[in-house]
Simulated scan of single mutants.
Amino acid sequence: MPFEELKPQVIQLLKNEDQSVTDRLHTICQLLKDKIDYYDWVGFYFKNEDKEELKLRTYVGAETDHVIIPFGKGICGQVAVSNENFVVPDVQAQDNYIACSFTVKSEIVIPLFKNGENIGQIDIDSETPNPFTEKDERFLEFVNQEVAKIL
């Protein structure tokens, strides 16, 4: 499904105030995994209070042991420090990659800002080599901007 068609669905799901924020984030994860065939694991990490670490809030996909990620460690930890998008076409080529599953071939992590502060991120793993484009980046930036409105 094209990203432009998903945008109104993202907005609608996030507006559902009958659900908790975490439940709404989970529905976004499920939507993205279901509608974009190369999104195999979708999750949201957030800064863990005043600690220099990220904590997994919700996700859809294979189970992970990576519930807590220190700043600077792995792709997610690097994004927490750099405040910049990180697209990894081949996870095997990354020295600082935390392997979640041997089936993961690529990853994209987009920081989530609220009032100019990096408070979290959306993390997507793919079992497809090098599937992410600038269109994925722009779409996921849009998702995070919409998510920030309900936090």
Rank of each mutant, 00 (worst) to 15 (best):
residue 7 K to G: 02
residue 8 P to N: 10
residue 12 Q to R: 11
residue 15 K to N: 15
residue 15 K to M: 10
residue 15 K to V: 02
residue 18 D to C: 08
residue 20 S to G: 09
residue 20 S to Q: 05
residue 24 R to I: 11
residue 26 H to W: 08
residue 28 I to Q: 06
residue 36 I to A: 06
residue 39 Y to F: 15
residue 46 F to A: 03
residue 47 K to M: 00
residue 50 D to W: 02
residue 51 K to I: 09
residue 52 E to V: 07
residue 56 L to A: 09
residue 57 R to H: 13
residue 59 Y to H: 07
residue 62 A to D: 09
residue 64 T to K: 05
residue 65 D to S: 14
residue 67 V to H: 11
residue 68 I to K: 03
residue 71 F to Q: 07
residue 72 G to V: 11
residue 73 K to T: 06
residue 80 A to C: 06
residue 81 V to L: 14
residue 81 V to K: 12
residue 83 N to M: 04
residue 84 E to L: 14
residue 88 V to H: 01
residue 90 D to W: 03
residue 96 N to R: 11
residue 96 N to Q: 03
residue 101 S to C: 08
residue 102 F to Y: 05
residue 105 K to W: 06
residue 108 I to C: 05
residue 115 N to G: 08
residue 115 N to W: 09
residue 120 G to I: 08
residue 124 I to C: 02
residue 125 D to M: 10
residue 125 D to H: 06
residue 127 E to H: 10
residue 128 T to I: 13
residue 130 N to V: 09
residue 133 T to C: 00
residue 135 K to D: 03
residue 135 K to M: 01
residue 137 E to N: 09
residue 139 F to T: 03
residue 142 F to S: 03
residue 142 F to K: 05
residue 143 V to K: 02
residue 145 Q to D: 10
residue 147 V to M: 06
residue 148 A to Y: 07
residue 149 K to N: 14
residue 150 I to P: 04
residue 150 I to W: 04
residue 151 L to N: 07
